[in-house]
Design a protein around this nucleic acid. Sequence first.
DNA 1: CCGAGGATCATCT
DNA 2: GATGATCCTCGGT
Length: 203
Amino acid sequence: MKAGADGREGWSLPGPGFYSAPAPELAPLLLGCLLERRVGGRTVSGVVVETEAYTEDDPASHSHRGRTPRNRQMFGPGGRAYVYFTYGMHYCMNVTAGEEGRGEAVLLRALEPVDGIDLMMSARGVGDPRLLASGPARLCEALGIDLSLDGAGLEGPDLLLLRPRAPGPVRTGVSPRIGITRGVERHWRFYLEGSPFLSRRAR
DNA sequence: CCGAGGATCATCT
DNA sequence: GATGATCCTCGGT
């Protein structure tokens, strides 16, 4: 078997147009993908198990009131990181989606840890693998993601997102998004059914 | 298991 | 000046 362009068997770069899908379509497609963070010559990575979509006409979205300095990556092309700082202490990471100017992104809410688990444990200060990246801010802390990665490409030296070549049979769950007060009627949270690494247990 | 409260500050009104 | 796309701890059941 031949290794992929990235050198990892079983994983490959997304094809052209992957990230230009609207956020509610891209969000479930990101489930099962591998997110790699390269730092200090080491790789920390995990499989995406939970995502949420946000669009410009969506009252829960940071882009809902138009372009601001913070959310400007949401209005750029798809396939970049949109990282924001919140609650005075947490970072959260999105994957920008859709065509340029559309104001869309997919929040990464949880990963199943794969590589560099020792680094994640020391970064997070916990040993239970289920608590390493099961939440948008936990995920960023585990991978060492902060504002310096806002706008970073997902095929770059710091962040790499890969699709599984042969996705296994997986059930995708759908639910309302978490932690919002408006736009609750849009069920735009997607998760791998039965994963022990979700930010919340299934309903 | 569950809910309440606090931490802590950049961002936007 | 108010508000979070959160997380952790603590106390009750």
